[in-house]
Design a protein around this nucleic acid. Structure first.
Lengths: 340, 340
DNA sequence: CTGAAAGCGCTAACAA
DNA sequence: TTGTTAGCGCTTTCAG
């Protein structure tokens, strides 16, 4: 029927325990023995049973990716991160579970608990805004479940992956300044996301660098969603002195801004420059194509998961790695209208 | 430490086996006993160990969602299906694994095998184009792994969920006809997807109904991806007698068509009507908003998974349920240009 | 460096 | 309708 560890042991002429040691890459196995066992495993096409391993041992070889189902950014961003996490799992013989959570839900922590004790998850990958949900982090620490974060706000004592959103945003807004814009507005993301703060900070920094005074009327709330971009732009464009450029905190909202501009007969970039952040597929599918910051989401998911696995191995401790950003300047940004 | 089945049994004054029976909703448990056990489980906050259940029993309470990582339609479509499958899992105490596969890869079947034997998956949800990959289906049947499909081509002996793509497409194209279009083109999807065939069939049916001759020059190959929509539209718009309306087999390609129209200075819908299929978020984010067919992807994922679970329960046999479509007529379609 | 014995928490097959 | 007895396939002790 099924090839068991015992069968491999017999074939290799060793005890089950030795096979187990090889399987788990433990030390103290003679090299020749290890090779013999490995060969037997291979020739018999042995696949350990995760259930048995989970039951007997302390590890499950399961990694869970947690995300917020409610306050989440564009699904395409999460989908890319998920692909990246899967890449890493694949490379390290881990399996992945995907766990949507409702951060605002009453039984939020209970669900997390259930998740952990049900499946003995070895570790967890957190995506924004879960990366900075204090009760969640506390619970994970209490239960000693290792985790890695994608773009956490609090970067001390956290492993995973991040990007320098602030400088990226600053560079993007500086580009607008260089094009000649002075009335530059910003559409914020959801309040509890780190990305929202950093991108705002970058926006402000660019203004300061250009000697442009900060005008609170030019900064309006958004929610990372298309519709909120539309609403924000309507507000901005109705201002007595409307901006000549709008920097939205993500691409979806930038798409909304462009939509609103179209709606009131403006032409991008002739009448209004628009830029976003993330470089989701949408960015290059809009007309005109959107100037934005490339955020390598899939790579980031993979790196976060790899750091987690590093930690799980017990060999290293895992790091918070930083990925580089790059500007994607396309056709949605141009010189401000002359008459402005 | 951990509350085990045995602890519950002791607390309820019954044998472990009886608790197991209650847990698995088996028959032949006196109602009063069942209630007592349930109460004990609840008060002790008992959570069965999936590892132990998987090891001892034949079930794992794990459902895998398989998708093709290579030839896949828009990731947003898959993400919605995934959410739907998760909804169903949640409601039935199943866990979900997400399994990207490379249909074209050399070790495709081996990976499927590994997946099944590693995790003892109870059942599988298939998404296009995996729904109709003969070797995969054969293997699943051989290994007696139940599966449910989302939009399978072959609808006999298959459970899951489907939609009447053909009539939907026909209705959409008929709408173009009613607006006065006669030169209507179609951008095909990836060849091995059922959706591609059905939507083409609907297109043809609408032409026949309108007495418009079929012109093969008006039907060009696409790949369900934005870029392929751009390429297809360029080809169509370069025709000596370009179409006045283009029906793309999905929204992403329709976005590409609109992009190409913009590129050559045409205005949608004044110079060209465009419509798509799926009603992904993108559809309402384009300018002008896209006329399309609403396909309730999340609902479909959920329904497919529910049918699978029905089958797993052994109570019913599972059905192939059909969800209704609805036209979303927006601003990307209008009357053909007068001079045309 | 290697092995023997004892479970992990549950369910299957049987019995009562 | 309920209980008893063996394992499921692995890892954990603890001895060699």
């Amino acid at each position: 029927m099924r090839v068991r560890l015992e069968d491999v042991a017999r074939a290799a002429g060793v005890s089950p325990k030795t096979v187990s040691r090889v399987l788990n890459e433990e030390a103290y196995v003679k090299d020749s023995t290890r090779k013999r066992v490995l060969a037997a495993m291979d020739s018999m096409n042995y696949r350990p049973s995760p259930s048995a391993r989970g039951l007997a041992g302390s590890r499950s070889f399961l990694v869970a990716m947690l995300y917020d189902n409610n306050d989440n950014p564009a699904s395409t961003y999460l989908a890319e991160i998920q692909d990246g996490v899967l890449d890493a799992c694949d490379a390290n013989r881990y399996s992945m579970m995907v766990c949507p959570l409702r951060m605002r839900g009453p039984d939020f922590i209970r669900r997390v608990d259930a998740l952990i004790s049900d499946h003995h998850v070895d570790g967890v990958v957190l995506t924004p805004p879960l990366t900075d949900h204090p009760p969640l982090l506390r619970r994970l620490r209490e239960r000693e479940v290792p985790y890695a974060s994608v773009s956490p706000v609090n970067r001390s004592e956290t492993i995973g992956v991040c990007m320098d959103d602030e400088h990226a945003a600053q560079a993007l807004v500086s580009h607008l300044v260089q094009l000649g814009h002075r009335r530059i507005a910003h559409v914020l993301g959801i309040a509890n996301h780190g990305a929202t703060r950093w991108r705002l900070a970058g926006y402000k920094a660019a203004l300061v660098a250009a000697g442009i005074p900060y005008d609170p009327d030019y900064v309006v709330q958004g929610e990372f969603m298309f519709g909120s971009g539309v609403a924000a732009a309507r507000k901005l464009l109705a201002l007595p002195e409307p901006p000549t450029a709008i920097f939205a905190a993500n691409d979806d909202m930038a798409a909304g801004v462009m939509w609103a501009a179209n709606e009131c007969g403006m032409k991008v970039p002739r009448d209004l420059s628009v830029c976003g952040f993330d470089d989701t597929p949408l960015a290059s599918q809009l007309w005109p194509p959107l100037s934005t910051v490339r955020q390598p989401a899939r790579e980031m998911g993979k790196l976060a998961a790899l750091q987690l696995m590093e930690l799980l191995r017990g060999k290293g401790t895992g790091l918070l790695v930083q990925v580089p950003y790059s500007l994607q300047l396309r056709e949605s940004t141009g010189k401000p209208p002359k008459h402005a």
